[in-house]
Design a protein around this nucleic acid. Sequence first.
DNA 1: GCGCTGAGCGGTAGCGTTTACAGGCCACCA
DNA 2: TGGTGGCCTGTAAACGCTACCGCTCAGCGC
Lengths: 336, 336
Amino acid sequence: MVASIEDVARLAGVSIATVSRALRGLPDVATATRDRVFAAADELDYIASPFAARLASGRAATVGVVVPFVNRWFFAEVIDTVETALRKAGFDLLLYNLGDEAGRDRFFDVMPMRKRVDAVLVASLVLSDEEFDALASLGSPVALLGLERPGFLSVRIDDIQGAYQAVEHLLALGHQRIGLIGGDTDDPMRFTPPLHRRDGYRDALRDAGRAADPAAEVLGYFTTDGGSAAAEALLALPDRPTALFAESDEMAYGALRTIRRHNLRVPEDIAVIGFDDQAIAELMDLSTIRQPVAEQAVDITARLLAAIDGDIERTNVVLPTELVVRGSTDVTHSVY
Amino acid sequence: MVASIEDVARLAGVSIATVSRALRGLPDVATATRDRVFAAADELDYIASPFAARLASGRAATVGVVVPFVNRWFFAEVIDTVETALRKAGFDLLLYNLGDEAGRDRFFDVMPMRKRVDAVLVASLVLSDEEFDALASLGSPVALLGLERPGFLSVRIDDIQGAYQAVEHLLALGHQRIGLIGGDTDDPMRFTPPLHRRDGYRDALRDAGRAADPAAEVLGYFTTDGGSAAAEALLALPDRPTALFAESDEMAYGALRTIRRHNLRVPEDIAVIGFDDQAIAELMDLSTIRQPVAEQAVDITARLLAAIDGDIERTNVVLPTELVVRGSTDVTHSVY
DNA sequence: GCGCTGAGCGGTAGCGTTTACAGGCCACCA
DNA sequence: TGGTGGCCTGTAAACGCTACCGCTCAGCGC
């Protein structure tokens, strides 16, 4: 049926050990021998059985990637980039999609990646101490994308600073009353941004000498519909805000919809700024805070692979965000 | 270090063969024995080494999923659903993200999933005969999502019929001149819809007694920007269309942007209908043709798993599309 | 009492690699 | 000429399971 290493060895006239060494590019193989081995492998269309190799070597040549969802912009982007980077390095990507709370519990209960990955990459999940312990107990390098924890590799943006930028921008435009559409900091699927982005919002207001107003902070649950409903509530306030900061672009879209339904103009009546800079933010002419997703993914993947190779550095990288001004806050930037 | 099957056997006072049988739920194990084995495995926190098991059994317990991108709505949705279904069945999901043409060529050249999956799921790629052969030569079941080929398992929608529905809807609204924003049928990353959706468009016009007008068919390349540019070209036509059918929602978004920039009203001046019904289509108040993505993914995954178990049925399933009327074609449906 | 049956279990030969470890060979030097 | 060290190569023991085969023994029918 399919060729095994022995067939190659026979055809090349060497031992299987030499075949193994030659094919993997190890030293101590004469050039002529190596060529013969490659020729034989080629002729037989041979590739090594990964399972046998992994069993014998103890290396899985696989990285587990854990995400709460794959069908959301941020995570899809991460998976896309990480897969490409891993493939280039000769690693397989084993995907773990938590999905919901039950899936999350099951995952941390069973630890299904045990004995099958060399390293783990966790994307934007707020983890409990027990969950961190569970990951650490794998004994493999663990990398965090979108959050930080001593002892773990990580990359993230400064959510506080990003949110601060957004609110600062609105303040600079002269807005006096700025509403917040936020995420639920107690969500069981808790991903990381909500906490910090809200803090950035509050910090910016405080630094501008504004008093915090709990009524102006409404939950949008990081969904479009949630953002829509939140905007509804904010528009109904006696002292209506003139600007809204949504902790994600998705929620900002919902807010825009609501505002349009109320026949209010953006940004003249109400300005809106989001966070993330998804591809369609430009389409919606939405001002936002851009975070570099691919860069984060590339950075953490490279360092995770280094960690597999024994690099013991456990650094935490923070990449900058960038204010992107469009028509939803500044009419002079409008593309329409 | 970590427990092996021998440790469990010793602790339970049985042979490793019995441990293996007990843990895998095979028959020929007394209940009392099984309980002892489970207790021992539990105490030692033992799980079988997947690589050893796969080497010995020849089963990979893994399905390869091949996609051209992961950061596009359709594919992200597919991966999300398939991962969940596979995990439930005890299978791992090995992701292969082609990315671009170079990646695609490399993939079909190397066939990196050789010897490491029990089956392959290919999502919405138009494949050449050679590529089909390459897949078939794996000797494992191959499932196609979004296209059809004799001898392969498949599930898809009827793109022709869906496009027909869209154009029919526009005709019923009284539109005389209907433009098409299409995909490039020669794109090297060729995914499947462009061909068929254009055919459906043409069929509908023909059946209505309209002559085909090549000038009214413009390429939008299945991107928002492409759709935007295509709409620009269509608006510049001497005999401007009163309605546009975009072969994907993404292109429809671009068209909406262009139309808004020209200060034209939707749908009064120009009606727009898309295809797919992505989550944000509702947000954009875009009429469209809904295709059931999760249903397709669930269906094909189930049948692919059955094929791994020896089911030799190679059926092709076609799921229905549905016209979703919103404000972009029918003002009475507008949510604004 | 006997043979038959089948449930329950153990022994063990693979599965296809990797990786010590042990040489063999040859050039080079004293 | 003998010794030494560097290349190169082969031998064989893991790696941790699965699956086949065969054994034991209780229960059963006759």
